[in-house]
Design a protein around this nucleic acid. Structure first.
Length: 409
RNA sequence: GGAGAGGUGCCGGAGCGGUCGAACGGGCUCGCCUGGAAAGCGAGUGUGCCGUGAAAACGGUACCGAGGGUUCUAAUCCCUCCCUCUCCGCCA
């Protein structure tokens, strides 16, 4: 655990020891409490029997004896809930441990380029998507700011149509590849946010609806993975593949500058998500097929990309292994992340009490995975730049034409 | 939003202060029966946690929507919340 945490860049690994210590105390208290309860239960049962037999005096005598037992139970229960909260608070702060195949590293420089596809264009004449979109009147950032705030753009005319085409294309592709389409709620409750690990790790990134105790989803991963929370799945039913289109809301506090220019980073964006529930022994290969599927989408859109195998220090709190797919943005001459394919092992399942029944009839935690397939804004950015002509037109990728009815815009 | 009814195991559905982890029916699993099947018969059939154990298993404890409370004892009584259903209102 500690090695894994250290590899993820956690400086402080003492939480592990503290958890063990708290757990030790917690166990002791549980045992004591159970014993005291057993005693009380025995007495209560006896009293019941005596009453039934009409031996009132004997029963009364026993009732008088129950006082201190009750006190003890109450005291132990209080202790136990305190210990449990202390232990669990610590436990929730411990990240998932990286898989052995993940390169050890401290930051983005240590990520490994796993694969590249296509020829990233270095031609200078291409406009960044925000300039082209402004020129054509396709995306209205200013009115978005007026109506809501920065990071909430309007897409207009052909751009709105392109968005819708992409959503449909992604959903149709996923369906053809065995993913069941789901339309989930866009708000979730606190248990769900904790189930997938947004709480406590990424609590600040979510928009909240405090009056009703809801969180606006930062990704469809949250409602879709929680779909099976607190369930025991049958082994025959695995693996389960879901896909869902949803808007995603992220506060993205403290992000400014060219990094967030145009469609690079928004507070609201559209995404088609892929979620898998699988047998623990299959999650490694399931991650690879998830990655390959996401890659196939970029290939069908003729967008050059590269796949990174994220190193331990750059992969995040909840994952055991993660690939990032980055599409090339020729207008910006940089790579943009459009998909993140992750294996969570049993991390989310443990939080969600999500199990399956194995060959022997025992319950075991399932493994969960998810990936974007894909996130729209940066794909749109790359389409506008990659398929841009010198005349300022955009050639629509063949696979999208049935959805748009045009070859260019 | 208003009024009423209700939330029990895989499902249906009893229980409404003690012997209830929970009757009964259905489902499912195993066995018997059969040439095979149906019917019939018999047995079994929850989860979390703690402890013992290599394991199988066993012991304890908790769980009858969630959380509090009353009581020697709560699925059963009280309070708060959530959810479902019916009627009215409103409404895409």
């Amino acid at each position: 655990m500690k090695q894994g945490m250290a590899n993820k860049g956690e400086k402080e690994t003492s939480a592990v020891d503290l958890v063990l210590e708290k757990d030790e105390q917690w166990r002791k208290t549980v045992t004591e409490l159970d014993l005291t309860r057993a005693e009380g239960n025995k007495k209560a049962k006896l009293i019941g029997q005596l009453m039934a037999q009409g031996k009132k005096e004997e029963a009364q005598k026993l009732i008088r004896e129950t006082g201190q037992g009750k006190e003890t139970v109450k005291k132990l229960e209080e202790q136990l809930s305190v210990l449990q909260k202390e232990r669990d608070d610590l436990l929730y702060q411990i990240p998932n441990v990286p898989d052995a195949s993940v390169p050890v590293g401290t930051g983005s420089d240590d990520n490994v380029v796993f694969k590249t596809w296509g020829e990233p264009s270095t031609e200078e004449w291409r406009l960044p998507h925000w300039d082209l979109a402004a020129e054509k009147g396709w995306i209205d950032f200013d009115r978005g700011s007026k109506v809501t705030g920065a990071g909430f753009p309007f897409y207009t005319g052909p751009m709105a149509r392109l968005q819708r085409a992409l959503i449909n294309f992604f959903l149709d592709e996923a369906a053809e590849n065995g993913y069941t389409e789901i339309q989930p709620p866009y708000f979730v409750n606190e248990d769900s946010a904790r189930g997938t690990g947004q709480i406590p790790d990424k609590e600040d990134m979510m928009y909240t609806i405090p009056r009703d105790g809801f969180f606006a989803i930062p990704t469809a991963e949250v409602p879709v993975t929680n779909f099976h929370r607190d369930e025991i799945l049958s082994m025959d039913g695995l693996p389960i593949y879901y896909t869902a289109y949803t808007p995603c809301w992220r506060r993205e506090a403290g992000s400014y500058g060219k990094e967030v220019r145009g469609l690079n980073r928004l507070h609201q964006f559209d995404k088609v998500e892929l979620v898998k529930f699988v047998h623990p022994e299959k999650s490694d290969e399931e991650l690879e097929s998830l990655r390959e599927y996401a890659e196939s989408l970029l290939e069908k859109l003729s967008l050059p990309y590269r796949t990174l195998l994220m190193c331990t220090g750059d992969m995040g709190f909840t994952q055991t292994k993660k690939y990032d797919l980055e599409v090339w943005s020729p207008g910006q001459q940089r790579w943009l992340e459009v998909s993140s394919c992750s294996n969570f092992g049993s991390f989310q399942a443990r939080r969600m009490q999500l199990r399956y029944r194995n060959e022997k009839g025992k319950t075991e935690m399932v493994h969960t995975l998810n990936g974007s397939g894909l996130a729209l804004p940066r794909v749109v950015a790359s389409i506008l730049e990659t398929h841009q002509t010198e005349a300022g037109e955009v050639i629509i990728p063949k696979v999208l034409r049935p959805y748009i009815g045009k070859a260019q815009m």
